[in-house]
Simulated scan of single mutants.
Amino acid sequence: MSASDRAGPGMPCWVSLLTGDLAEAQRFYGAVLGWSFRLGSLGEDFSVALSHGKPVAGLGEVARRMGVAVSWTCYFAVDDADLVAARVRERGGTVAVGPLAVGRGRAVLAADQAGAVFGFWEGKVLRGWNIGSGVAPAWLELRTRDAFASAVFYGEIFDWDNRPDLCEVRYEDEAVMVRADGHTVACLRGGAIEAAPDPRIRPRWHVYFRVDDVEKAVEAALGAGGSVVSEPGAGTGRVGREATLCDPEGGMFTVTENGHC
């Protein structure tokens, strides 16, 4: 997560896979999403995924070392990691790692009051990496029990309400939408997660990646040792046709066609 432009404070600025096997993750996501990879600036346990030669996501072989589940994690830009970490604790969340010096910035891995894991980053961010455009993820969605309670939590820790020039939060389509400069950057959606029979369905930030053909992506995922959580079908209305997949280690994500925000 380094370059020259800063994302607006409190806005998504990166996504990263916490994996237990970097080589296996690269093989899987290369097959399913067509990514190539280069060594990251943080050492041999980290790589940057490239789509059409442009950075799209990070991968780090740190899940076992950190004692966390293999998962995709979204990061938000902040001006002061210590201040935001204190706000997380004050509001019933958990700070699991950090603030930790990483390259030229500082990173924190945390969980909200419902247990959904997220991160935040103090430092420079990638120029042109914007949700819903270019090679960046098509969509970020918090799937939780109470979208309004979560909106209050994130609004307070990231100071969304006090930055109307940078951020707009509104209720639409039974969800809370977060916009920056008129562009939707995140969605917070509530639902009956506690009643879901699948133990993998728990409060989480969920990442959508754009593909040309969902069926081909599903076929590639199965061929590469992954699994299907939800079969191809119509999207939420904000993204196109979609399917939810797991990589061989259980990292969950969604592929979608014609994703836009």
Score class of each variant (00 low, 15 high):
residue 7 A to T: 06
residue 7 A to R: 10
residue 18 L to N: 13
residue 18 L to H: 12
residue 23 A to F: 06
residue 31 A to I: 06
residue 33 L to H: 04
residue 35 W to K: 00
residue 39 L to V: 12
residue 40 G to D: 06
residue 45 D to C: 05
residue 51 S to F: 12
residue 62 V to T: 09
residue 63 A to D: 04
residue 65 R to V: 15
residue 65 R to L: 15
residue 66 M to P: 01
residue 68 V to K: 10
residue 69 A to V: 14
residue 74 C to Q: 13
residue 74 C to A: 15
residue 76 F to L: 14
residue 77 A to T: 02
residue 79 D to T: 14
residue 80 D to C: 09
residue 82 D to Q: 11
residue 86 A to M: 06
residue 86 A to P: 01
residue 88 V to M: 05
residue 91 R to T: 14
residue 94 T to G: 03
residue 95 V to K: 05
residue 97 V to W: 07
residue 103 G to D: 10
residue 106 R to Y: 04
residue 109 L to W: 06
residue 111 A to D: 05
residue 117 V to L: 12
residue 121 W to D: 01
residue 122 E to V: 04
residue 122 E to S: 09
residue 125 V to D: 14
residue 127 R to V: 00
residue 130 N to L: 13
residue 130 N to Y: 08
residue 131 I to S: 00
residue 132 G to P: 07
residue 136 A to P: 01
residue 138 A to C: 01
residue 142 L to D: 08
residue 142 L to K: 08
residue 149 A to D: 12
residue 149 A to W: 00
residue 153 F to C: 09
residue 154 Y to T: 08
residue 160 W to L: 04
residue 161 D to V: 07
residue 165 D to P: 00
residue 167 C to N: 06
residue 173 D to L: 09
residue 173 D to H: 12
residue 174 E to S: 14
residue 175 A to P: 00
residue 178 V to L: 15
residue 189 R to W: 12
residue 195 A to F: 07
residue 196 A to G: 00
residue 199 P to Q: 11
residue 199 P to L: 07
residue 201 I to T: 12
residue 204 R to W: 11
residue 205 W to K: 07
residue 207 V to L: 10
residue 209 F to M: 13
residue 217 A to Y: 03
residue 233 G to D: 09
residue 234 A to I: 03
residue 240 G to Y: 02
residue 241 R to D: 14
residue 242 E to N: 05
residue 258 N to P: 00
